[in-house]
Design a protein around this nucleic acid. Structure first.
Lengths: 211, 211
DNA sequence: ACACCGATCTGAACGGCGTCAAGATGATCT
DNA sequence: AGATCATCTTGACGCCGTTCAGATCGGTGT
């Protein structure tokens, strides 16, 4: 049920309009895609006037930042789950990569908002490199555990970035129609993902880090 | 000089408005970025009314497609140049990867339009996998030459996709502010690019293809 | 109990956007 | 010269993000 439907019984002061707006935005993203995500549409969905959001967000960009933040949290949970599922350390990187791309396929509109926000500011999401539960830190920590003592810290950082770039690139391209034939030949979407990731050094269990 | 400035001496019928609109769009992209690229702004820059573009393009998306097409041609030329510069076959893949990312850094707004067009349609650009001069085919052909006879065609395709994903991901992330410190430590932007690419299997001359 | 105040929300407005229909213009062909 | 047709303009529509004055409410101090 949309918020607008229950708006009539709602008190004049909403109580938690900020959260309601973020939820409304996520509903629109899921149901109608990123192109339908206007500030006015979000306000409509939440059952308030077009100006109401401005008491909780500086502008549209700040609302999208809040939506993106929810997305990054979800992605972090998703990859923590992958960590729990991995049979052993050698398989962990591949599980993380597959989970990352699958998340982007399950929430394509949200994933797009997440990256658009980052690109607009030329910044990784806040806390991404510090917060222990973030996807970035999970990958880096995995490399640290895999790496022998001869591997330098800078190479761990570079490998993390490389893995991130590869996963993001695959996330953005895996939906291209031209690859459908190849996917069928390989036996499905996940086989395709594992096939591509298998060609990226750090996702190969036998050689996760450059020597 | 903007087209608007010489519009007064122009005949009523423009002659080549289609090309002029694409050029105007590219000027706006270079000077003001993607957010300033409205159909009306393009028409203003070209010195015509807001409705004039509709006689040459179905809608705004089709204009952007034309702009993107120019961009892909430029990228193809850029990477053909990289091929000519490469010392030997082993170094070619890295040269291609570096050139790809550098192109995205030299034309960030254009690069964004190129990919936005593809994502909107969930398609690689037209002819990308067929046209011999395209960046995609150049990479695939390089892998074919590097590969031994034991490597299957499907692995060449997967490696091409993997390389493309990695390069695209790096192109989108290399501008993030968080990496500036790391770049300095490595001795500059290009060292950073080579460092990241070095962790990606297919960009390592000694092992370009999964065995 | 009551007045007040700050936070919250509305309504109306502005300029800019993409798009379209109707009309004006000019090159081209007979 | 006159007809034709692609090309371009004018004016309009609805939607957008944003702002601002004013209405409304919840909580606080007296």
């Amino acid at each position: 049920m949309s918020e607008a439907a229950i708006a009539e019984t709602r008190p004049y002061h909403h109580g938690d309009l900020r959260r309601a707006l973020v939820d409304a935005a996520r509903r629109i993203l899921e149901n109608e895609g990123p192109s339908a995500l206007s500030l006015r549409a979000v306000a409509r969905e939440a059952g308030v006037s077009p100006a109401a959001p401005y008491h909780h967000f500086k502008d549209k960009g700040e609302l999208l930042d809040a939506v993106a933040h929810v997305g990054w949290d979800m992605l972090g949970d998703c990859m923590t789950g992958a960590k729990a599922r991995a049979a052993d350390l050698a398989a962990l990187m591949t599980e993380i990569g597959v989970s990352y791309v699958q998340f982007s396929q399950q929430h394509p509109a949200l994933y797009r908002v997440m990256y658009d926000c980052s690109r607009d500011k030329d910044e990784l999401p806040e806390g991404m490199q510090d917060n222990e539960d973030s996807a970035y830190c999970l990958v880096r920590e995995t490399f640290r555990r895999v790496a022998g003592p001869e591997v330098q810290e800078v190479d761990i950082e570079l490998a993390t970035i490389a893995a991130w770039c590869a996963a993001h690139g695959l996330a953005e391209m895996s939906t291209f129609k031209q690859f459908e034939g190849l996917k069928e030949g390989l036996g499905g979407e996940e086989a395709f993902l594992r096939g591509v990731l298998g060609h990226l050094g750090m996702f190969q269990p036998s050689r996760p880090l450059k020597t």
